[in-house]
């Protein structure tokens, strides 16, 4: 890791949990354009804290409407053979509303990474800001992942920027900016960085 970025953090308030490696089974959701209204419907956005959104993750796909005691058996989160810390999903994941509650819900449910061939911009930022890792892979690699059996495990290494299918060793490298990588590996967030730049911000205001 280049020290230039690392040393930019003068304040080291650690409030995110560092994320370095994940090895886990995965939950497949082979759908495209999954919007944040599906991830967490608007009627569950009335809370004023960040906690507890996981129980309403994919609420309307997961439960018979307005009856949370009755799961829909054909939805993947209700199928016990699928489990793990990785959510595998089709392209344009997280499009639509900017609600960060979507990232909170996915994380609160227990996922640490989402793998897709394409993420909507705001969702990607929201995820990273919460230490939830969006892993963008090629369409081809994504198809290989979806073809795996439910017992298969994947390994994700944030520092090396790799995602590997454990049983075959097949691997792809994913993109992440050096800055964001530093944040994830150490549990820093943008506010820590911005606060360390207060003087530069005040100077900017004076000189414009």
């Amino acid at each position: 890791m280049p020290n230039t970025v690392y040393s930019l953090f003068k304040i080291e308030l650690i409030d995110m949990i560092p994320l370095q490696k994940i090895q886990s089974r995965f939950v497949p959701l082979p759908m495209e354009n999954v919007d944040t209204d599906q991830i967490i419907p608007a009627r569950f956005l009335k809370a004023t804290t960040r906690d507890g959104f996981g129980k309403n993750l994919f609420r309307d796909w997961r439960y018979v409407n307005n009856d949370d005691t009755k799961p829909k058996p054909d939805f993947v989160l209700n199928q016990s053979e699928y489990t793990g810390e990785i959510l595998l999903t089709g392209k344009n994941f997280g499009c639509g509303s900017s609600r960060e509650h979507a990232a909170w819900a996915i994380q609160d449910y227990g996922f640490k990474a989402v793998v897709s061939s394409f993420f909507a911009d705001i969702f990607k930022n929201n995820a990273l800001n919460n230490g939830l890792l969006p892993v963008k892979v090629s369409d081809d690699f994504l198809a290989q992942l979806f073809a795996l059996g439910n017992e298969s495990t994947l390994s994700i290494d944030v520092d090396k920027q790799t995602i590997t299918i454990d049983e075959t060793g097949k691997q792809e490298i994913f993109e992440i900016s050096i800055y964001k990588k530093t944040c994830l590996l150490n549990g820093y967030d943008d506010i820590d960085y911005l606060l360390s730049n207060k003087q530069a911000i005040e100077d900017f205001e004076m000189n414009r």
Partner: peptide
Amino acid sequence: FGIGTSEVEMVFASQCLL
């Protein structure tokens, strides 16, 4: 442009975003 809640917090704290 639209932002998430963590970013709202950043703007509160620093009037800036990354």
